[in-house]
Computed example of a mutant assay.
Amino acid sequence: MNVLDAAIQDLVMANHILANENIVDAYGHVSVRHPENPQRFLLSCSRSPEFVAADDILEFGFDGEPVVPGGKKPYLERFIHAGVYAARPDVNAVIHSHAADVLPFTISTRPLQPVLNTASGIGEHVPVWDIRDRFGDTNILVESIEQADDLASTLAGNSVTLMRGHGFTAVGRTLIEVVKSAIYLPLNARVMMAALSLGGEIKPLSPGEIAIRHKTPIDSPAYTRAWEYWTNRVKLSRVGACSCCGGEHGQHDTDNARGK
């Protein structure tokens, strides 16, 4: 398997992992920088992540448009990925999610802070991007490269930016790293909300604790073990499911017998 095919295979699995872990549903998307051309990135066509397959993966330029036009319809918010990759040469994977647990922190003045060691990857500072600040009333979707560039400027050098009334965009050095951040970000939000409900002050991770955790090598077993775990959960969730319709094996025989 060549490096491009391997990247596509991992990207497909990342889509399935994020869907299985309830980080994305019918909406949301994940991309990787092209392994052979850093001026391009790979992202699925407009399809729910749970059903993404290898032939759904398209190649994009930093203008947010498919390199080969006229194919499958792309996501409306593909520009998010284009803007981030153009602004952040250190980023090799991007996730956009509408996870409900983070939404309270997108519409309040209380900042989201890392309180769990597993969520240290979100960083010390989690900014909130409000599309209305520069673009006025919109549908709150990122549908142009200008909007994406503005989002990227709020993200700046951070690992995550929340999006007012919308969700979040997370970035990472690798696909595994950003998947981990995206999975533990909503859990971190839930734990922080629970702690705040008890009253008093909370104790977030210190800058030093975050820095120590960030030194974990990207090829560390801490990451590869997690990827193996999430991948296996996807496979177990699909045991007995029909690949063409999602139903149980044998359902077609039953339907055929009934004349369906």
Rank of each mutant, 00 (worst) to 15 (best):
I122K: 04
V128K: 08
A148G: 08
A119P: 02
T174D: 09
V142C: 13
V102E: 06
H166N: 15
H96W: 09
A93N: 11
F105V: 03
V171C: 13
A86Q: 15
E143T: 11
F135V: 10
W129G: 06
A93D: 09
I80N: 14
R88A: 04
A170S: 15
A87M: 13
R190L: 03
N158D: 14
A148M: 04
A100D: 14
S120I: 13
G123P: 00
I107L: 11
E124F: 00
I95C: 12
H96I: 09
T161D: 07
S108V: 11
K180A: 06
R110M: 05
R173E: 15
D130H: 12
D150H: 01
A189G: 05
S181F: 02
V115Q: 07
L162I: 01
S144E: 00
V142H: 06
H98A: 10
A189Y: 01
V178N: 08
P111K: 08
I95L: 07
R132E: 11
T154V: 10
A152K: 09
V191Q: 08
V128I: 13
S153E: 14
R190F: 02
I122V: 06
G123Q: 00
G172P: 12
R132S: 11
D149N: 15
I131H: 04
G167C: 12
H98W: 14
I80R: 14
T109N: 10
P186R: 13
A170W: 10
Q147S: 00
